[in-house]
Design a protein around this nucleic acid. Structure first.
Lengths: 257, 257
DNA sequence: CCAAAAGTGTTTAAAATACACCCATGC
DNA sequence: GCATGGGTGTATTTTAAACACTTTTGG
């Protein structure tokens, strides 16, 4: 199917596949080499960037829709994605944007479900930046990581959605563990600390951090130290999946300094 | 308009007024005389009970929809309502239920937007039980308060929605103030404490409670004691609206014992 | 004057924070 | 051997929790 055909089909018949008026937008934070990035798509025919998003199939759980979107953009699956807020400003209209898109694609259409109002459910996840195979969707020319501290212009309310997600990621750090499917199987305590520091965007005390994390029982200390490293070799840890998942649900109950 | 006409209209033309596939369900907790209740509607032609719910008008903010629903059921407005979760099980189908409803109402219809799948956004609020003027909607025979500790059978996943709301109400008690538009203008410290105890369903230490609440600055101590009361007269307080609202957004940062 | 509820303060325990020393390694 | 980062322990401060006595009032 040509691009034009695909687009026409989507605008004309999409409502037979998807629930109307509802979209899902994913704020995918990526961490790698101590940088916190977020995955953005550059809209075709518009300079602005967008969160990876999509629609819910008629018989699909919304969580599955979010996972499908994540998988399609990054190849990643089995990621802990969670909904965090619904954005429902009546003024958040994709109509003009989508009409412009169609026009530029050379398609003429008067009516489409894509011209109607959408409310969107924000999902957030944290993944290993380096493991993702980025693939733009049909509406986009580029799919890239952007550092959260230098974001480009974004469409609609996507900047607000992103900010809300970032704030809740930082807040949740006190209650929910972070790092699985983000750090390698084996990792060191300083590596984990860097992750926390990057998300919070501030330094943490090395000793207190270690004590608190150790106290949560989400880690297993391995009988192995990192090799070929300058200075004293740090110990390897891995996550205790059972306790990690328990903490994901139930919370950990400590405050980071 | 007769009931039958009204129903027919809603099932046939509702999609011109409302967004399809999306509903809003409100978990309205009511507090009065140290009882925590929740507002439920009894479905016509079915014994089971339902949360007050409704749909989003085509140009309406979802928050406004929730407020409209609350107002229609209780006459209350200017209430702090907040979304807490989206429920999107593909199996949460209102189709059979609504078809049965129509049949019992004596209306024959093959197709309707009301037979389609709905995802629902849960909203929660805490109101003064005694100030509400309860009015059932067209789908219901009764609108009543039910004690959260003895709930009747409920339709669909409404019991799960309710439980989720109750859990988050209890959790939020540590971070967000509670009591405005719930307690009278002037109230005593023991009254406020009872509210907290009722929500948490456990006793709190009188002295520690007072210290912590006082520490949040959300209260103003008045130069007045309760009159005509047995035993030592408790002091009156009122909320410091400015700080109260600040705490609603930013959190209060203490743990209740 | 006494029972019952409210006001207030102190002691103890736990948690968060700040801080210092020793150890291993590559250069 | 020394600079650098990692491991670990301790003192201090803050916060939460447990607890007891005094005050007021109606009956």
């Amino acid at each position: 199917m040509s691009f034009k055909e695909e687009i026409t089909q989507h605008f004309k018949k999409g409502q037979e596949l998807y629930l109307r008026h509802i979209s899902v937008d994913c704020v995918i934070f990526g961490f790698h080499q101590n940088k916190l990035n977020v995955l953005l798509l550059q809209s075709k025919y518009a300079g602005d960037w967008a969160l990876p998003g999509g629609f819910i199939l008629k018989q699909e759980h919304m969580d599955d829709a979010a996972n499908r979107i994540l998988k399609n953009r990054t190849g990643l699956h089995n990621i802990y994605l969670q909904q965090f807020h619904v954005f429902s400003e009546p003024s958040r209209s994709t109509k003009l944007m989508n009409q412009q898109f169609l026009k530029n694609a050379g398609v003429v259409m008067e009516e489409s479900w894509m011209f109607e109002r959408f409310i969107t459910v924000g999902y957030t996840a944290l993944v290993d930046f380096s493991k993702a195979q980025l693939i733009p969707d049909s509406f986009s020319v580029a799919c890239e990581w952007h550092n959260v501290n230098s974001l480009p212009g974004m469409i609609l309310d996507h900047r607000e959605i992103l900010n809300t997600a970032l704030l809740q990621l930082q807040t949740n750090l006190n209650y929910h563990p972070v790092g699985y499917n983000l750090l390698p199987e084996k990792f060191t305590m300083p590596e984990l600390q860097k992750l926390y520091e990057t998300i919070l965007n501030r330094p943490l005390d090395r000793r207190n951090f270690q004590r608190k994390i150790t106290g949560t029982k989400i880690l297993k200390k391995l009988d192995e130290t990192k090799k070929g490293v300058a200075h004293k070799a740090p110990n390897y840890y891995k996550f205790d999946l059972k306790n990690y998942k328990k903490a994901l649900k139930g919370g950990m109950g400590f405050q980071l300094s």
